[in-house]
Every structure is written in structure tokens, then in C-alpha cells.
Amino acid sequence: MALEFISPEGLRLDGRRPAEIRQLRANLGVIDKADGSATFEMGNTKVIAAVYGPHEVQNRSQQLLDQALVKCEYSMANFSTGDRRRKQKGDRRSVEISLVIRQSMEAAIMTHLLPRTQIDIFVHVLQADGGTRSACINAASLALADAGIPMRDIVASCASGYLNNTPLLDLNYLEDSGGGPDVTIALLPKLDKITLLQMDAKLPLEMFEKVFELGNKGCVAIANYMRNVLLENTKDLAFARGVVKV
């Protein structure tokens, strides 16, 4: 018998309502040596992101004369999943996620303002409980903003799914492995543009639109939270330093 994902009272396995995101938590400036860094938590999923750059291009043959080179590396800590296992770097999954994160961040960064430079984004999953892809994009977005890299808009990402004939927002690991479709969206909320849309299952079109709409709303909610964190961080830095006339 299939697992009951929604109780008769309309609550999910972890007690959320179908259109509710998990608790969010974000911290900026967690790594000293990085130009920008952030941790981002969505419930039990926790990721850390570090941004180095813009700096000199390491491999000169890759240098771009009209825009910045963006590189991204995704990795998972051995202790991040339920069963401890050693994963080699560069397996298919992490290569794919690195690519996805890079593409969605590149769409937001104003790369044409930083020609002949390189921006490195490193994201590391500390705890995996579903939605690592979204959490990584959110963390990378905050880290880029912390590094003072010009961006068109903040990228916010959220997953949504469809289980027990109900659209669900922000799936956790159990729901993720429930076999239903899983739609990951990354959104530029102010510009109202999608930078990432992924789905790994089939879903009727009318259902897809509902799920997609729900995921969009989740992204907007997450973006609002991220903007608050960023603004508070900016204020903290400015007030500590005081007003300086340069």
C-alpha cells in the first residue's frame, strides 16, 4: 500500500499544510576567507555556499573578453544523508546539479560588467532532506549578494510536487521519494522570470499548471525572506562602520 502523504485532517507527514514551506533560516558571512558566503536552511535541509571572486581567470584559455566566467561546484558531505557513504567528486548527479546552479545564477549575475574575470561558487550540502537543489540556489544567491556582485535580481528557488491528488509545496525527503513528480523552479521575482524549471516525471498539463503556480508562490515567499536577511546584514555592516565620507 502506498504511503499516505496527507492525513485526513489535511496535514502532511511533518505536520505542514500542502501549501506551506518549511522553516527558513539564513546566515551571511560564515566563511572568513571567501568574498561572500551564506548558509541556508529549509527545514532539515542545510547547505553552505561560498563565493570567491570576481578574480583573475585561473585558466587563461577560458577567459572571456566580454563577460565574467562563472564556475560552480556542488558537493555533498558524507554525513549529509541517512546512510553514510563516500561519494566521489564529479559523479553524474553532482555534475548535473552544478550545471543547473551555474546556469540559474548566470542568468541573474550582470556578467557583462565584469569582463576577463572569474567567479567561483562552491555549494556544499551539510544536511540533505529533500530540496537540496533549491536550497543550494538560494544559498548561492545570498553568497553572491554578500560578495557585492551586481545582479539583476535575487534568485529564489523552491520545489513543488503532486502526491495523493494534491499539489504540495517544498517536498521533504520522504515526499520526494514518494514517486510523484517533483518540479523545481528558480525565479527572479521582481523581473518575474524563470531561470530554472525541472521536472522528473509525467504530469497532466492542467495539474502541472497548478503545481507550477504553487512553486512560484513558494519562490516569492522565499525571496521575501532572503531580502529581509540581506537588508538586515547590510544595515548591521553599515551601522558598525558608521558613516564615512570617502
Binding site: 561572500g36 521582481k190 540581506l230
Partner: peptide, 28 residues
């Protein structure tokens, strides 16, 4: 964007006469 002036950085707005810039706090 659409005739509206938006910031691309998180920071402090500085105005010198007609010039409007946004100074980020942490950057290279």
C-alpha cells in the same frame, strides 16, 4: 527596468548632484 531605476547591489544609495550610485559594503 521598464523606465524604473532599480538597484543591482545590496548597499547604500549615494547621490552626487544628478548621479545616483549604489555602494555595496562588502566587495572587492
Amino acid at each position: 527596468l521598464d523606465g524604473q531605476l532599480l538597484a543591482t547591489l545590496s548597499g547604500v544609495v549615494e547621490r552626487v548632484d544628478q548621479l545616483v550610485t549604489v555602494k555595496p559594503l562588502r566587495c572587492r
